[in-house]
Design a protein around this nucleic acid. Structure first.
Length: 151
DNA sequence: TACACGACCTGCG
DNA sequence: CGCAGGTCGTGTA
């Protein structure tokens, strides 16, 4: 487990057998951070260094969601893709993609914040926080990566 | 099986 | 602008 401070929040990750299984944002640190392998990598990321996160995750999701998240993982640091881009690659619909990324158990580690709507930002519902705050997080993650998005 | 519901998109007025 | 209609995987019953 670990909790890393960022902005006025904390980013928390749950590990099992060396795999990330769940991550979320919270106002209060959810865990007492023990030493783990990926702490420094994440701290670098949140401090604004351009690091491609490389953290193994164990996903307990449907085959379809897995395929979508697989595509999402390919979006490079600082870039974005639209829901319909991904839909086209997987021969499905943008809405189905939206549902799939919504079920991403490990936000940030699988960069679902890089998936945006064609006209706008799209949504973001990870964490225990309310939707408005969540969306703010998405925006800040994108600007942290310097995606050059202005809304 | 059936149905309602999206972190969407497109076309029409 | 607004809005209907299309889309397709999921959860629930």
């Amino acid at each position: 487990m670990l909790s890393i401070p960022w902005e006025n929040l904390y980013f928390n990750v749950v590990f099992e057998d060396g795999f990330a299984v769940r991550s979320f944002f919270s106002e209060i640190p959810a865990f007492k951070t023990e030493y783990i392998q990926f702490k420094e990598q994440l701290e670098d990321y949140f401090s604004g260094k351009k690091v491609e996160l490389d953290i193994p995750a164990k996903l307990n999701v449907s085959p379809f969601v897995r395929r979508v998240l697989e595509e999402v993982s390919k979006i490079p640091y600082g870039k974005t893709a639209t829901y319909s881009d991904i839909a086209q690659k997987l021969k499905t619909s943008p809405r189905a993609v939206g549902q799939a990324v919504k079920r991403n158990p490990v936000p940030v580690i699988i960069p679902c914040h890089r998936v945006v709507a064609k006209n706008g930002l799209g949504g973001y519902t990870t964490s225990v926080l309310n939707p408005k705050v969540s969306l703010k997080i998405k925006e800040k993650l994108l600007s942290l990566e310097g995606s050059g998005i202005s809304f």
